[in-house]
Amino acid sequence: MIRYLALRFAGLAGVLLVICAVTFTIFYVFPADPALQACGKSCTPERLAMLHHQMGLDRPLWQQFTDYLVGIFAGRSYGSGPLAVQCHFPCLGFSYQNNMPVWDLMMQRLPTTVSIGVGAALLWLVGGVTVGVVSALRKDSLLDRTMMVGTLTSASLPIYFTAMALTVVVVQIGGLLPYSSYVPIAEDPIGWTKNLILPWVALALLYAAMYARLSRASMVETMAEPYIRTARAKGLPERTVVTKHGLRAGLTPVLTVFGMDLGALLGGAVITESVFGLPGLGQLTIDSINKSDQPVVMGVALLAAFFITFANLVVDLLYAAIDPQVRYA
């Protein structure tokens, strides 16, 4: 188990390292000189040269990359002498736009994204799995068919379409909820909920549909297994057969997908955030890309990749707990 964990963590670090290198290449090699952008309109050659030095851009590329890596774990200082700027752990550089540390910028935005992601995830997990399991148990009934047509449609709805339609119907015509904005949960839990209901529902409609289809397919397959017949034959009540024997095996595939989806969502629900105008990581990404603010884009990309790979790891470990067939040596 320890050996397995160590291997997995090494793998995780490897993936992040490669992503880091790729991001670095994309954002530092391709575009125009970042110092020129930071320099602004009234730029003199001296000031540009100084900025180059300050940002470490006058050093060889591989050295810039190692500096960046070291900065993440140990912090670093930009420039030298009296002009040096200290960047503390975990240092992902400074935004070109407002000179804020990238880490702080991201941490400001993270609560919004987490609020959207976790809330929606709970909603779609419960909703989707319930629909899927009920459908599977009543396979080929009218209810099953109706629900499957419904989920197919709901899965085909583009999120921005759902978002706009919900806003028009619920907010504009119905007047039931306020136009979405972000209120921190600590300040006003009720306001937080009210503001996030629409984004949650919009996201959940899309994902729940996929989960319903997935859990239905998986449950149908599981309930046809011989051990389910055995469980029934030894006289267990149907409820126990379904919950104890069926769900456990039937829902394992759902878990894998759930981990990956939630991980991906925590890196920024780009579209949802931009439709509802919520200041999360996704918004930050779009803003930074539009303004060529490379350190921020790189920071967000790394954080998002971390969430995805980490979620994968957690899922694999949970697998062992749920499914006794999968035990790691």
Partner: peptide, 18 residues
């Protein structure tokens, strides 16, 4: 595996923009 663990939308946006 590597390509799959990229945050895809973010990278697509970033790639297209540069």
């Amino acid at each position: 595996d590597m390509v799959l663990s990229f945050p895809q939308l973010i990278f697509m946006i970033a790639l297209v923009s540069v």
